[in-house]
Design a protein around this nucleic acid. Structure first.
Lengths: 118, 118
DNA sequence: TAATGAACTTACAAAATTGTAAGCGATCAG
DNA sequence: CTGATCGCTTACAATTTTGTAAGTTCATTA
């Protein structure tokens, strides 16, 4: 939970007021958010699928990140019509509008991420 | 300082191994880094200039962020030929190669950042 | 030469994020 | 009806990031 009276929080707000790029970044900040969006570009997935594709993530953090992405409108949570209590997550139109952003982040990483050669 | 034995650190490494976009994002993570790059796209600037353009930043944090950007090779610190101990910061070639990334982050923010209308 | 300013650094505290471990309420297969 | 699985939630601790306040060093200015 954020303290909306903290200098930290206030500074973030000011920053978003003077830098659009920083605002965008803030929507993606959180260890796994961006990667979740990348995975969801492939199509809608369930909680357990996402967990399976991100071996190091814990359920707690996965739930947190999904909730925040939903709150900021980038993804949608749908209940299956066939089975109750079965949900799928998918990109919302807003999330899809991030396509170019995600693509350029991926492209730059592909060229400069030496880590990935392992 | 990061503990290279922490689960947190190890998870970040794993993540960069499986997601190029996340690697790119990690190079930009830090409250002011991206905005510093945005400012430096306008041309090289000095410490005090940057401080002046980012009213809310403290000297401590500005110094930290600049040092990290330098360490990751995105910016260069140059000493003035005319006056000793006067430095300017500028984008390195690697930093300039982020142009497309920064541009798409800005573009998305421009459309979706309601905050900025203040 | 004393004062000023630029560019930091240090020690410390607060806040935010992430990880650990366990538990809980459906729903469903058997 | 029973146990298993899915999709979470809770309480707590560790880690990481950011902020506060003060001080330092060197070089220039007056």
């Amino acid at each position: 939970m954020r303290k909306i009276t903290s200098t930290n929080y206030i500074n973030a707000q000011k920053l978003h007021g003077l830098c659009d790029a920083a605002y965008t970044l803030s929507q993606l900040s959180g260890r796994w958010k961006l990667t979740l969006l990348v995975k969801l570009r492939e199509g809608s997935k369930r909680f357990s699928e996402l967990k399976g594709e991100l071996p190091a993530i814990t359920e707690r953090v996965l739930a947190l990140q999904l909730k925040e992405l939903e709150k900021s409108g980038l993804i949608l949570k749908q209940e299956s019509i066939l089975k109750k209590k079965l949900y799928t997550y998918e990109l919302s139109p807003l999330g899809k509008s991030m396509d170019q952003v995600i693509q350029s982040l991926s492209d730059w990483g592909k060229i400069n991420n030496l880590q990935a050669e392992l």
